[in-house]
């Protein structure tokens, strides 16, 4: 089934273009459809949280935006330009690796299992991208990375290898590493799920700081409902590969409209 690509604009125009737009995005693995016709706009500076039962496709949304997964239909736009596609003879065609790299530079991501580079110290982890990818002079990259490590409270551990750091500490370094690339959009994929309960706070506090201090656009998948309620501008509840309900956190958590949302929230509340 080929899609009519003429329905998609070559780029987004107007006064209020979203930082991220998913338009009719579809993702399947063979016969299994993971996401069906996803339409989602995220505004500049907005903090959007995705919640939902496992298998609802919420992590897939982040992974598609980071280009860790290819999409099977639709278009993803970042900062007004298509990410998954590029213009050729007036229509959108699948993007070349070079095009993807150019647009992808606006996106950063933190993972559930941190994925720090084990053969590099905390500081080396942070300067790797700026030096290798952005071509920044080492001294400058170090100075900037130290500021970021300081911001996440890890400056004193700069020369430690990841194996010597706790989970919470590793995740904070991973946040600094992602920020060192100066992304416009930050993705947090269950960044507290692999952490011991007593260190979750040190990571959520860093994310709170980011919400307060930066004009970053953020998209987060989390199981921490309290945290989601506190810091999100908007919460999306995913069910079966589609957005079942989305609203401001006060509304979605206090007064969910859909039955499935109520069931999910009740189940989560009971578990806690």
């Amino acid at each position: 089934m080929t899609e009519d690509m003429s329905q998609y604009p070559l780029q987004l125009e107007g006064d209020n273009i979203p930082m991220v737009r998913f338009q009719n995005v579809r993702k399947s693995y063979g016969a299994l459809t993971v996401l069906d016709n996803l339409n989602l706009d995220i505004d500049m500076g907005e903090m959007v949280t995705i919640i939902g039962p496992s298998g609802s496709g919420k992590t897939t949304v982040l992974r598609m935006l980071m280009t860790l997964e290819t999409i099977n239909g639709g278009v993803i736009y970042v900062d007004g330009e298509p990410l998954t596609h590029m213009e050729k003879n007036g229509v959108l065609v699948p993007a070349s690796p070079a095009h993807i790299r150019r647009i992808r530079s606006k996106i950063g991501m933190c993972f559930q299992h941190f994925n720090l580079f084990p053969h590099m110290t905390a500081l080396q982890n942070c300067i790797e991208g700026p030096v290798q990818v952005l071509g920044m002079p080492r001294k400058k990259a170090e100075a900037r990375s130290l500021e970021l490590l300081d911001m996440v409270g890890m400056a004193d551990k700069r020369d430690q290898y990841p194996s010597r750091l706790s989970g919470g500490q590793q995740q904070r370094v991973a946040i600094a590493r992602a920020l060192a690339m100066r992304p416009k959009v930050m993705l947090f994929d269950e960044v507290t799920s692999a952490l011991d309960p007593e260190v979750i706070g040190e990571v959520t506090n860093v994310i709170r700081k980011l919400v307060d201090a930066h004009s970053l656009t953020m998209l987060m998948v989390t199981h921490q409902m309290g945290f989601a309620k506190d810091i999100s501008d908007r919460v999306c509840f995913f069910f079966n590969g589609a957005i079942e309900e989305q609203a401001a956190p006060s509304e979605l958590f206090e007064n969910p409209q859909r039955e499935r949302t109520q069931q999910f929230l009740n189940a989560v509340l009971e578990a806690n």
Binding site: I107, N115, F117, V133
Partner: peptide, 18 residues
Amino acid sequence: VPKGQWEAATAINMSTVQ
């Protein structure tokens, strides 16, 4: 080498050669 290392490399926009 864990798959997460490749994903982290993509997230900081490294090329395959890098």
